[in-house]
Design a protein around this nucleic acid. Structure first.
Length: 876
RNA sequence: GGGCGAUUAGCUCAGUUGGUUCAGAGCACCUGCCUUACAAGCAGGGGGUCGCAGGUUCGACUCCUGCAUCGCCCACCA
């Protein structure tokens, strides 16, 4: 037999098997009569590159998919990418800028050509990276949010919602990103605390030397002030009723208004009102009929309505205003102040509340079924703590601003006529039809229509994802969507719970009347050991492909999963992937051991291996049931750890060590076959976590036919395990450990003969396991005894007393002390048990099982005390 | 400002409707071993008054109240 190296080398193995799986189309799923199991991938940005978050996320999905496949389901993992409107456009704009090109100079068409070129060049890189990880997606189903079926679906949905009177166009205060020059949704604004200043400014009363002091954080917006507001109950300002004040710097005369909105205790109790640049001010302005003076351009510079500092950036204007106010003697003081500023989630610049004409989706009605079905458990969130967050958002959901002043995306299917009125239609021909009807003018032509320049929010396409990947918007009767939908599990990060998950649920009920998925598994955020978020700018994120090269894909997968309880942040450290790699090596070497054995058909199966086989069989079934349970609760980490211990501790350290024949001795056929059988089951259980090494070993283990693969093997259904043998083994394992400890502590070499005698009360020790005890402790003799053994080290395992007799003389005093300690402990223990058992309320109220257990403990403790007392006497 | 969640071994976390004098696991750590599967390993070992203070109970890591610290989400106080 060919020698194989003692270190597993994944470098040759992983690509080989991935190609094999692809070649035999093992990831492919088409509807059949099996039960479907479907996951749609959270589509990564088409031009993005894989980061650690993707690695975790997709590893979990792959584990779930592979396991479902091996559980007899028709598993389908649909991959795809997102056009990521604003992010991609920003990248293309930047690239063009580097070439000295401005997007407005080249125009929409030309710009989109560049964007597609960029997409084709960088798109798909991330999917190739996923393949390195082992992702078993059905690549034939790969979708893109802007490919024709998806594009058309988005447009169809827009028209549908418009016809249902849920989409409207209107002038509203929106979050404006002056860098990207587009409106944003509320969810795209991130509030951050910043150190700023509070400026106290004098506003003189008209025709008076009297003034009122107003506090503001944004002195540049004074240029757009159209009122000053105070609380009507504020006694300080009663004399201002009906008065006007003069706006500093621009000397505009504006009224003093009264509204309870103002908090008299803040600042000076007087608020300047700039309806164009603050949401609250806007609303007060509406209420009090104030004019709106918009002093900003769409890039955040001041326009001519500001009168001063025209063309300057808003932050420059702030400084200039500060100086100017000082010069004019209108600045009373400046205080340090911390407040929250909304930043654009994408460009990270402070957003500007701005009045603009946008498209909105009414959310309240749509949100209702989405909320209900999460609250009633029809859709489950893991961990469930997110239900609260979800509910809070849903209950307070506001209309969604869905238009973006960008070009890369789905263009809004609204078509304007010369008079400014518009029609909404799926394409320009339909639009023309409608326009003709609407105007009653049959001579209208396409050139009379002008399509809306804006595109839709990226999330307005991804919210359809679980439906649109099966083309279920355009073809609701499509057999594909009938079969796969609702999908099963969604795996994503909690930071897009509102952006994406909530909206997908809304879309699911709005367009199919059904939930889009049954379970949502929210992973944690990956952080470094200092709890910092992993990010490019911090440079604390390892390059995923480098990690894979260093530790193998299997190793990285295991490393990530070992520390990923649902919803908790993951403090990533390379040592974890190292642990994963080491585990792979352990499996590899266990295989080498088993493979090295030679079968001798003539030898009988020895008793000790018969027992080991019997034991492991039960343990395997018991553990498989545990793993099933972990999976049901999305405790992937626990499932893996359970398996890890099963393989490493139970199978390798116990089972294999017990059955291992002496050096170069043969093994009997039965034991060998059983061992191979267990090994194969373990490989299958491990496969979803470590697809590559398990395939490699499974293929090495036996001659397989071309196209056969462990990934399409079925996992056995665990049966109810008999626990008696497992318990008996636990006693013996503990005894073995104790004997080894004595050997080590007393410096008793492995060659030195020892004899073990056992006094077993309450049938604690199963004497048939003596052969195993003997083999694992290298004892020459194992014997049940009733007589006293004075010169022996002793210990107890529950009610069984073990004596280790060696050629050494024991230290009587030391032994006595040991026994005395244990005796005291056990007496105390018994006392606590008795206390419980003699408590009527305990016996009456505690479950029968608990009481029963107490009785058993009492019996064992009593036996143990008797044994210890006897032993103490023996040692006198 | 409102809400939610957390606080258990050096680190990261379990601890299942209150029931052991077991408070666990993995990693890290300490000791001894290159024992022909594996030093990416083997064997053995130490380590926590379960954030603090009360309360309920026969019994509290587990339930209640208050406090402290941290995290997350939401919110137009200039």
């Amino acid at each position: 037999m060919q020698e194989i190296p003692s270190k597993y080398d994944p470098s040759q193995v992983e690509d080989k098997w991935y190609q094999y799986w692809m070649k035999h189309k093992l990831f492919r799923s088409v509807p059949d009569n099996r039960e479907p199991y479907c996951i749609v991938i959270p589509p990564p940005n088409v031009t993005g590159v894989l980061h650690m978050g993707h690695m975790l996320n997709n590893t979990i999905q792959d584990v779930l998919i592979r396991r479902a496949r091996m559980k007899g389901k028709n598993a389908c993992w649909v991959p795809g990418t997102d056009h990521a409107s604003i992010a991609t456009e920003a990248k293309v704009v930047q690239k063009l800028a580097a070439e000295g090109i401005n997007k407005f100079d080249i125009g929409r068409e030309k710009f989109l050509e560049h964007a597609w070129e960029w997409t084709h060049k960088h798109g798909g890189i991330i999917l190739e990276q996923l393949k390195k990880l082992g992702a078993s997606c059905d690549w034939e189903r790969n979708c893109f949010t802007m490919d024709p079926p998806r594009y058309e679906s988005v447009i169809k949905v827009f028209v549908d919602l418009y016809n249902r009177n849920l989409i409207y166009r209107g002038v509203r205060m929106v979050n404006w990103d002056p860098k990207a020059k587009t409106a944003l949704s509320d969810e795209e604004v991130v509030y951050t605390e910043v150190n700023s200043k509070l400026y106290y400014v004098k506003y003189f009363l008209e025709n008076s030397h009297d003034y009122i002091v107003v506090a503001t954080t944004r002195p540049e917006t004074i240029l757009g002030d159209t009122a000053v507001c105070v609380n009507p109950n504020d006694e300080r300002y009663q004399h201002l009723k009906g008065k006007n004040v003069i706006v500093p710097m621009v000397n505009r005369v504006v009224p003093v208004i009264f509204d309870e909105y103002v908090d008299p205790s803040f600042g000076t109790g007087a608020l300047k009102i700039t309806p164009a640049h603050d949401l609250a001010d806007y609303e007060l302005g509406l209420k009090h009929n104030l004019p709106v003076i918009d002093i900003l351009n769409n890039d955040g510079t001041l326009n001519e309505k500001a009168q001063l500092f025209v063309g300057e950036d808003r932050f420059v204007a702030r400084e200039l205003s500060h100086k100017k106010l000082e010069e004019l003697g209108l600045l009373v003081k400046v205080e340090d102040y911390t407040n929250k500023v909304g930043l654009s989630e994408r460009t990270h610049v402070p957003i500007e509340p701005r009045l603009s004409l946008q498209w909105f989706l009414k959310m309240k009605e749509l949100a209702r079924p989405a909320l209900e079905n999460v609250l009633n458990g029809n859709i489950k969130l893991y961990p469930s703590k997110f239900v609260n967050t979800y509910r809070h958002w849903m209950e307070n959901v506001k209309d969604w601003c869905i238009s973006r002043q960008l070009w890369w995306g789905h263009r809004i299917p609204a078509y304007y006529l010369a008079d400014g009125s518009f029609v909404v239609a799926e394409n320009e021909y339909q639009a023309l039809e409608k326009a003709r009807q609407k105007t009653g003018n049959p001579h209208l032509t396409l050139s009379d229509l002008r399509q809306d320049e804006d595109v839709l929010d990226t999330w307005f396409s991804s919210w359809l994802w679980p439906i649109s990947v099966f083309d279920g918007i355009r073809y609701p009767e499509n057999p594909e969507i009938k079969y796969y939908y609702p999908t099963n599990d969604l795996v994503t990060a909690p930071d897009i719970l509102f952006f994406w998950v909530a909206r997908m649920i809304i879309a699911g009920y709005a367009f199919t009347g059904e939930k889009p998925f049954r379970n949502v598994y929210l992973t944690g955020l990956i952080r470094d050991k200092q709890r910092r978020k992993m990010s490019k700018s911090l440079g604390n994120s390892p390059e995923p492909l480098d990690l894979i090269a260093k530790y193998s894909a299997d190793g990285v997968r295991v490393g990530l999963l070992l520390c990923s309880p649902a919803g908790n942040d993951i403090l990533f450290d390379e040592s974890l992937t190292e642990q994963g790699r080491n585990f792979g090596n352990k499996i590899w070497n266990a295989f080498r051991l088993v493979r090295s054995w030679k079968i001798d058909e003539h030898i009988e199966q020895p008793a000790y291996t018969q027992l080991a086989v019997e034991w492991f069989d039960e343990l395997l079934n018991k553990t498989m049931a545990e793993i099933d349970e972990h999976f049901e609760n999305f405790r992937i980490s626990d499932a893996l750890m359970t398996l890890y211990k099963l393989f490493w501790d139970e199978f390798s350290s116990w089972y294999l060590e017990i059955i291992k024949p002496a050096y170069q001795q043969p093994i009997d056929r039965n034991t060998y076959q059983k061992t191979v059988e267990y090994f194969e089951i373990l490989l299958k259980l491990l496969h979803p976590f470590m697809p590559f090494i398990t395939e490699e070993l499974w293929q090495l283990m036996d001659k397989r036919q071309e196209g056969q693969s462990i990934m399409i093997e079925q996992l056995p259904q665990p049966r109810i395990a008999k626990t008696k043998i497992i318990e008996d083994f636990e006693i013996v394992k503990e005894a073995i450990t104790q004997v080894r400890a004595i050997r080590k502590e007393k410096n008793i070499g492995t060659k030195e003969p020892i004899k073990i005698y056992i006094k077993s009360a309450n049938n604690t020790y199963n004497p048939s396991l003596g052969v195993i005890l003997a083999k694992m402790t290298l004892a020459d003799k194992i014997e049940l005894t009733e007589t006293k053994i004075s010169n022996a080290f002793s210990f107890m395992v529950r009610a069984a007393e073990f004596f280790v007799e060696t050629e050494q003389k024991i230290d009587l005093e030391e032994e006595r002390q040991k026994i005395l300690d244990e005796l005291n402990y056990t007496r105390g223990f018994l006392e606590s048990v008795m206390k419980k058992l003699s408590n009527e309320r305990f016996v009456a109220n505690a479950p029968a099982q608990v009481v029963e257990l107490e009785h058993k403990k009492r019996k064992d403790a009593e036996a143990k005390i008797l044994a210890l007392e006897a032993r103490l006497k023996e040692l006198q």
